[in-house]
Simulated assay, not measured.
Amino acid sequence: MQIRKAKYLIRAVALLALTFSLASAYDPGPLQDCCVFVNGKFCNDPKLTSANDFFFSGLNVSRSTSNPLRSNVTAVNVDNLARLNTLGISLAHVDFAPYGLNPPHIHPCGSEFIIVLEGTLYVGFDTSNGDGNRLFTIMLYPGDVFVFLIGLIHFLLNVGNTNAIAFAGLSSQNPGVITIANAAFQVDKNLVEYLQKQF
Score class of each variant (00 low, 15 high):
S57Q: 13
G58E: 02
G58T: 11
G58V: 01
L59Q: 11
V61W: 01
V61H: 09
R63Q: 14
S64N: 02
S64P: 09
T65Y: 05
N67S: 07
P68A: 10
L69V: 13
L69A: 12
R70F: 03
S71C: 12
N72W: 00
N72A: 13
N72F: 12
N72Y: 13
N72C: 07
V73E: 04
V73M: 05
V73W: 07
T74L: 14
A75W: 00
A75N: 00
V78P: 13
D79K: 06
N80P: 13
N80I: 03
T86C: 07
T86A: 00
L87A: 08
L87D: 10
S90N: 01
L91R: 02
A92P: 08
H93G: 06
V94A: 12
F96Q: 13
F96A: 11
A97T: 08
N102C: 11
P103H: 10
H105S: 04
H107D: 08
V116K: 00
L117R: 12
G119S: 10
G119A: 04
G119Q: 06
T120R: 14
T120V: 07
V123S: 10
V123W: 09
V123F: 01
G124R: 02
G124C: 06
D126H: 15
T127E: 14
D131R: 15
T137S: 10
I138D: 08
M139Q: 12
M139D: 03
L140T: 05
Y141V: 01
Y141M: 05
P142T: 01
P142N: 06
G143F: 06
G143S: 03
V145M: 12
F146A: 08
F148D: 13
H154T: 09
F155N: 10
F155T: 00
L156F: 15
L157Y: 11
G160S: 15
G160K: 08
N161W: 07
T162F: 01
N163G: 10
N163Y: 07
A164F: 05
A166Y: 02
A168G: 09
A168D: 00
G169Y: 14
G169M: 09
L170W: 06
L170N: 01
L170D: 00
S171F: 15
Q173M: 08
Q173N: 11
N174R: 10
G176Y: 04
I178K: 03
I178T: 13
